[in-house]
Design a protein around this nucleic acid. Structure first.
Lengths: 213, 213, 213, 213
DNA sequence: GATGAATGAGCCTTCATTCAT
DNA sequence: GATGAATGAAGGCTCATTCAT
């Protein structure tokens, strides 16, 4: 009689996925609030209101406000990380192409948009005084930087480089970050491609022979 | 014996300057708090305690908390602005040297240190949701960017450039920002010179003939 | 056995009525405070203490202090209004008897007692500078005055009047108000009947033939 | 050598009168504030601002806020009292004429105007909870009522009265108060004469033969 | 799971009062 | 007499959290 078991399992999975769905929905609402109000004005009441459920229930899913914020940050982080890692995995084994893949991935619409950037900056702003945030943000950032550096080093030995690998990596990453910030201010639209082309231009200047490879 | 007059004048100046001194002292305390606690945990009570006077008196000098924060941001801004503008004024009329002066100034100990950077980032984090901050931060940033771009354009016509002026400016500014952020994490110490050298390296790569001029 | 349904309904009604009960209880506490301390000394802390619950909860039911005060005034107003309107509705269609019914109702124990009068006066005292109060107080007053005037006009055409309807109405209403004020000072007790008799005496003087009708 | 003495006296008188002038000016500012803001929003800061001097100096003249309010009320009271008493003193010894003089005086522009009435009501509103106010207001009121009653009694024995003296006095005083209140709401203008005529009409109705006397 | 009611700590702000100059 | 600076006690309000239903 497998039915009850299956049903139970199914019910169990269902419940679990329902709970996951709720959590995701609440994280989304949290990001909306942070985007529009800033972290200091983001209250449980407002998050609950935006998500359309009661404040009491909100704390049933996330035991504390801090937990909710941390999981929101963690979600952002995972999304960001898997974005460039997936791009790398999909790219050929060539360091130059991988570098370009990372750059291109950095401007993917899913992670590089007004709302997400706004939330990132809000967390960054608080990270200095909240070790838990710093840990997440920092680790993420470091993984990205390290990989960028490793690629630059790999490229350096293959081609004529006009910059040391470390400086090259710093300038590329800095430029990406700077362009991200511009997304908050300037008009939206087709800037994404433009941004990618600009960073590619820098890469070409640093590694003149890269494209010809 | 003009003593009474002088004394009177002095007293007059004293009154006013005393008030100014208090305000500066309070702005300093505010920055301390933001640095250590983040904006969301920075309360008037804590600022007053740090400055060593009553909360009531704090609001006698700054009518509202928001006003205090805004003036703190404005102070940071003025300091930052005058720093690079003074450096530019002191530099020769040569665009290349001026570009280097701006870069060097960006890492001056007075503005580029753990505390100040931490406060800047805290404000940036809130700026999305507080137009008043955005206005100050944005205007400041834009003046710097515009000047950098103008210098790159001036250099471009004089020497062989490996990058368009706009991309060059973006990468230089991005790299400066990226290095600033590093100040928050790594150990302090002699990184300042190192940072300047790294950006100079980028400039040299972009404008190969610049140094020989 | 419809018990569950009934119970559910009851529970439903219970929730809502419990909230209503709380609100009423809080309005009562507010009136107590205003009576004893005056509006300017009536604080949320004191109201909450008197009602026996926390200040936070007080503002959960009434979003703001002003809202609480306004609803208190509105309650007073509704009570006052329904008092004389019910009395009128219960009276025969005869203008003379209706006039007497209004007068009598004005001194009903439910609305004409030390506490309620004290609260009324407190609101009146603030009404000049708070348009919201003025609107409620004024509207109420006007409805009463208009009705009084209408009755005097109706009586005027039926009997010999020694005063124009408007003056009659003004003097009757003025006398009622004056007697109300006396309730704040003199000893309580049997003054209510005395007051009614005094106003009736005025009515008789103005409309000599009225009683004989 | 009378000069120094005189001068001293003069200086003394001057100082004193200057001080009196200041006090009067401050009382005036207080009434302005109460009129426009209500008692609960009337703060020393606002009074001082309106009077054009510093808050510190304000408390030099009146040691405490309560003292200032009480003296303001006392001023109002004295003005009111002397107004009807002077009118009585100027009137012939005839009770009927004296009654009319009192009524007429009640609507004198100096005491019966929007601002003054507004301030009176504000004090009345607070009087229940502030014995000091009650004492002043009550005493004043009582003197007026008593005199009115005495005149009614005097008239009663001279002429045919349609009302007992006490009821007559209550209705007359009530009508005056009611008309005062109307000054707060209705348009200003020539209502003063109209009000006097209306009360006279009531008097004529109560004491038919009075005018012919 | 879900909700509304309840709590208490803390926040920004106001304000009467004091005091040195 | 006059002023600005300073203080401390409330005051109204917000908010994360708890809890009974």
């Amino acid at each position: 009689m497998p039915t009850p078991v299956t049903e139970k399992n199914f019910a169990g999975r269902n419940r679990k996925s329902q709970s996951e769905f709720r959590k995701q929905q609440l994280i989304e609402a949290t990001m909306d609030c942070i985007d529009k109000l800033g972290i200091s004005q983001t209250t449980l009441a407002r998050i609950a209101a935006r998500a359309g459920l009661s404040q009491g229930n909100l704390l049933f899913h996330f035991q504390t406000k801090e937990a909710l914020l941390e999981q929101t940050l963690r979600f952002l982080n995972d999304e960001y990380k898997s974005n460039w890692q997936d791009a790398l995995a999909a790219a050929p084994e060539n360091p130059g192409l991988q570098l370009r893949a990372m750059i291109k991935a950095s401007f993917a619409a899913r992670i590089c948009n007004r709302k997400k950037i706004s939330v990132w900056m809000a967390f960054w702003g608080e990270s200095r005084s909240r070790p838990a945030y710093m840990r997440v943000c920092g680790a993420n950032d470091k993984a990205f930087s390290d990989r960028l550096l490793a690629l630059c080093e790999a490229i350096e030995v293959q081609t004529d480089a006009r910059l040391s690998a470390s400086t090259a990596a710093l300038s590329i990453e800095g430029m990406i970050d700077g362009l991200w910030q511009n997304f908050l201010i300037g008009p939206s639209g087709f800037k994404r491609d433009q941004a990618i082309r600009a960073v590619f231009e820098l890469v070409d200047a640093i590694y003149p022979g890269l494209t010809d490879e």
